[in-house]
Design a protein around this nucleic acid. Sequence first.
DNA 1: CAGCATCCGACCGGATACTG
DNA 2: CAGTATCCGGTCGGATGCTG
Lengths: 121, 121
Amino acid sequence: MEKIIENFTVSANCPVRNVLDRFGDKWSILILMVLGQNGTMRFNEINKTIGDISQKMLTVTLRTLEADGLISRQVFPEIPPRVEYQLTHLGFSLIPHINNLATWANEHIVEIKSSREKFKV
Amino acid sequence: MEKIIENFTVSANCPVRNVLDRFGDKWSILILMVLGQNGTMRFNEINKTIGDISQKMLTVTLRTLEADGLISRQVFPEIPPRVEYQLTHLGFSLIPHINNLATWANEHIVEIKSSREKFKV
DNA sequence: CAGCATCCGACCGGATACTG
DNA sequence: CAGTATCCGGTCGGATGCTG
């Protein structure tokens, strides 16, 4: 197997850590998945789809994803305001990898939960 | 594209969120990658490879990964003590997906960093 | 509707000291 | 060597109230 990472020691210079640190928050990956499945979505649509995210964290996370260039934000000058979010090309290129992880999670969650139970004892 | 997640709203019952929440910590994925690349490793080996992880967090994270059944821990009754960690079959099955993410990160980090810079302005 | 501002508790994780 | 125990500060994120 080829070595993907040569040096873990300098976190700021390690692309993997740099990127994965971003996904370490509570909502980023989930928002990307939701947008990947539903295409263009409005703020409240995402809010309702996820269900238990606070308005604050949705705003903050959307801004971060936008700063990273993973999603785009389009404001329509209407009243009441309409803001639509969608994946950029860059963000879309990440979706398959996230979906693979999600599929893995679905396939192995039972095994993991059972392992957690056993470990308690 | 097929829908992988039907319901995001109940986080405890959503396998994806259940699993991804685990990887939301600072070190889990990195430790899995290190073990994936180096095979069997001792405590201090992992410590030095990562470089800037504290002893406490390494211990805690290793225990969590062990509880999830992703890594195994073998203690050798010697003095000084030797403890070896390696991926389980379950943990190993996750490696390709993590590596895919890492590869993606390496390929797109420049684009992401440049996007972050532009967003500041 | 889509946010911003503020407050605040929880907990994540680092530093340090100690041990079999 | 491979931990455990304790302390403690920073930050993540929820709740609430307000706005164009």
